[in-house]
Design a protein around this nucleic acid. Sequence first.
DNA 1: CGGCTGATTCGCT
DNA 2: GCGAATCAGCCGC
Length: 194
Amino acid sequence: MKVNNDFFQSDDVVSVARQMLGMYLVSEVDGNKTVGKIVETEAYSGRGDRACHANDNKRTKRTEAMYRAGGTAYVYLCYGMHHLFNVVTNVEGLADAVLVRALEPVDGLDVMKERYGKVTKYTNGPAKLSKAMGIDVSMTGFVLGESCLSIHQGQKLSDDEITVSTRIGVDYAGDDASLPWRFYEKDNLWVSKK
DNA sequence: CGGCTGATTCGCT
DNA sequence: GCGAATCAGCCGC
């Protein structure tokens, strides 16, 4: 069952990030369906968070999709070669987003393997899962549930099954780097880093 | 316009 | 453990 986009239009991006654990990300690209359970997320806020691309209402061509209504995909290029998938949250005009950092593969394993060309894990990292699911920057702005991407309801995790930590790779954000805005399923083997 | 940096990953040392 | 790959955005000249 698809998650209603009302859920993503919450004004509490941190809470949304936490609740997304256990849900399923589905992509249907080139006739191939791939499914993964979300096991790791990070929250980014457009206001008062220096780690966010759209902080301080910074509007560029790249961040434009982040200002759309919650339930929109925001995909951007990092280090010139990696595509990172985010789900936009909050209402139109307020640029919050949740970065999906890791998935536990559920369906379409052979397709992921073919896309990735590696034998080892291919969904335990934000750039890896995007490639395995066939997601790229051309999908930024796509509406979840009305495009090749959708998010489905899953098993809700209880607090003692969730680990909270600081976000990865945002040291440049000063004090905001220490915000406890990263969530992952405790003891899950597919989490990118401990 | 040149130079630097990043929500990363891989491969070699 | 370090550097390359490689591009959008930003800052300084």
